[in-house]
Design a protein around this nucleic acid. Structure first.
Lengths: 153, 153
DNA sequence: TATTGTTATACTCTATAACTATA
DNA sequence: TATAGTTATAGAGTATAACAATA
């Protein structure tokens, strides 16, 4: 009887002993460290911040889509959106073709806030990266697209 | 006049054009994806979950230290801790030497919850990793300790 | 007198239920 | 009749202020 040489999950887990574990820990820690690197957006609640981030990633979304993405109920999302509209960070627009639906998108001011937040995190990260060797930065340059691919699985 | 060859931050940012940006995005996305991979701990609030995670990483802490770590006020942490004690996930003990202080630590049951949460995330991650090539996994194995080092800067 | 933590109270945020408008 | 969103109300969760115990 021939042996099955197709790599299965258990076998890979063994040969890559601990890779998932160390990768999970390091990714979660770095993400937490980056998340703490905030400033201007400090007066926003976590959910408000998450809405800005989601809209920055996904573009304009409806109230229902936003509620689903942030895992809150529609009435809560109505409130969150209203609050951000009052702050001048979101704009509501009617859906072309379905008058029940409300489309929400970032204002220019919100885009500036998001960009500033990114700039701040990346400035911190650049400073840390500058203390690595060229070879080490090369490894991270190779790793980044792989992490991206994993996140989209 | 001799040119200064010491690499400065601006120069490195240019040569590593976009590294901080792509790395930040990929790390944050993978962390978000991993965070969504939960199940048993679904009946806990985000702050309750964070307290379990912090205690799992740092060991026993006082109410004040926990409040500082989670960025909530002491009365709120008292409430969160009481709730977790009622659920059998935390135990309170007097501080040896300072009777004002309360030391909080995980119960065996809480440790089991945390381990199960990690197991679940790592099972998902292992599955995704199994679809990468050996060379790609090698890159991630090299990258993990670098990410860890960045997070501790 | 200063510090750690708790209790009392008010405020904010979220969820459920009922309602309006549109499909 | 079903769906998207809003309004009204009740329920968690957090913060501020006042307090108790210890240093």
């Amino acid at each position: 009887m021939l042996k099955d040489v197709t790599p299965n999950t258990a076998e890979i887990a063994r040969t890559d002993a601990g890779l998932a574990s160390t990768l999970r820990v390091s990714v979660m820690r770095l993400a937490r460290r980056l998340r703490n690197e905030r400033d201007a957006e400090d007066d926003l609640t976590p959910n408000q911040l998450a809405v800005l981030g989601t809209l920055a990633r996904c573009g304009a979304l409806t109230i229902g889509e936003l509620a689903g993405a942030e895992k809150v109920q529609p009435p809560s999302m109505t409130r969150i959106v209203n609050c951000l509209v009052d702050k001048g960070l979101l704009q509501r627009r009617p859906h072309p073709g379905d008058k029940r639906v409300v489309v929400v998108s970032l204002t220019d001011e919100a885009r500036a806030v998001v960009l500033e937040s990114r700039r701040r995190k990346e400035a911190w990260l650049n400073k840390q990266l500058s203390e690595l060797s060229l070879a080490e930065r090369r490894i991270l340059r190779d790793a980044a697209p792989l992490l991206e691919r994993l996140s989209q699985a």
